[in-house]
Structures are given as structure tokens and as C-alpha cells.
């Protein structure tokens, strides 16, 4: 049987590498500034930092699994994974639009513009992750 291969080199690994480098850079910046945010005074910064670490860990684990699969000869993407990406991308985009709307509505509650933008970007990533999980589980549901 002649197979038309849908093999694509995964972009996940280089993206993860960049994320890890950025995370290490973030640690260094924190270290140089000395002023490590405390839970009481800058709890929002702490939450954002924890979210970044969680996202980096999840992405790294996924990249490693994908890398192992590719080494075994499995494709990086197939029809199912592509459909998941398209569908979850659509829902994540819609949800992110509303999220940004709410962020700007409550902009007075954020200490500065960097926290607002950084938090928004991280929340967008989380929304994308959650959308992917939900779409995958409910793929055949009507």
C-alpha cells in the first residue's frame, strides 16, 4: 500500500527551547533585581510567574513526547491532530477576545500596564491549552 506521508517536522521543539531560554532569562532578571515578589505584596506577579512555569513545564513535556514519537517514525501531525488544532484555535480565539475585553474593563485593578499585558498573554496561552483539551474530549459530541 502506497502511503502518502503527512510527515512534518515538529515546530514544538524549537518553540519549547525558546520558552525555556526565556524562562531562564526571567529567573536571571528576577535574581539581578533582587526584589523577589512576596505573596502578600505582589500576589499577582507571583500568580503570573507560577503560570509561566506551569506552561513551560507542560510544553516541555509535550515536546519531549512528540520528539520521542517522531524518533519512532510517527508523524508530527495527522488528520486528527490538525482538526483539533483548527477547532481549538477557533474557540481559543473567541474566548481570548472576551478575555481581553474583561481585562480592559477591569484595567484599574492591575498595578501597571506590563502586568496587564503579560497577564493577558499568559491567560491567552492557558485558554488555548484548555480549548485544546475540551475540543479533544468532546470531538464527536454534537
Amino acid at each position: 500500500m502506497k502511503k502518502k506521508r503527512l510527515k512534518k517536522k515538529s515546530l514544538l521543539l524549537p518553540i519549547t527551547s525558546v520558552l525555556i531560554i526565556l524562562a531562564i532569562y526571567g529567573f536571571m532578571v528576577l535574581d539581578i533585581d533582587v526584589e523577589v515578589p512576596s505573596f502578600q505584596s505582589q500576589s499577582l506577579d507571583r500568580v503570573i510567574f507560577i503560570l509561566i512555569v506551569i506552561l513551560v513545564v507542560i510544553t516541555s513535556a509535550k515536546a519531549l513526547k512528540k520528539y520521542k514519537d517522531e524518533k519512532m517514525g510517527l508523524p508530527a501531525d495527522d488528520e486528527f491532530s490538525l482538526q483539533i488544532k483548527y477547532k481549538s484555535g477557533y474557540y481559543a480565539y473567541l474566548a481570548s477576545m472576551y478575555m481581553w475585553l474583561f481585562i480592559f474593563l477591569f484595567r484599574d485593578h492591575f498595578p501597571d500596564i506590563e502586568t496587564l499585558l503579560g497577564g493577558g498573554i499568559i491567560l491567552s496561552s492557558l485558554i488555548a491549552l484548555i480549548a485544546k483539551v475540551i475540543v479533544k474530549q468532546l470531538f464527536n459530541e454534537k
Binding site: 506521508r5 510527515k7 514519537d69 486528527f80 491532530s81 479533544k136 474530549q137 470531538f139
Partner: peptide, 15 residues
């Protein structure tokens, strides 16, 4: 030539 996950979801009837 698909990912293992696709076979899992096929068998479960989720795809």
C-alpha cells in the same frame, strides 16, 4: 502513518 493518540481516540469512538 498517524499518531498513536489517533488510534486511541478511534478505538474509544471519540473520532
Amino acid at each position: 502513518d498517524v499518531r498513536r493518540e489517533t488510534i486511541v481516540f478511534l478505538e474509544k469512538g471519540k473520532y
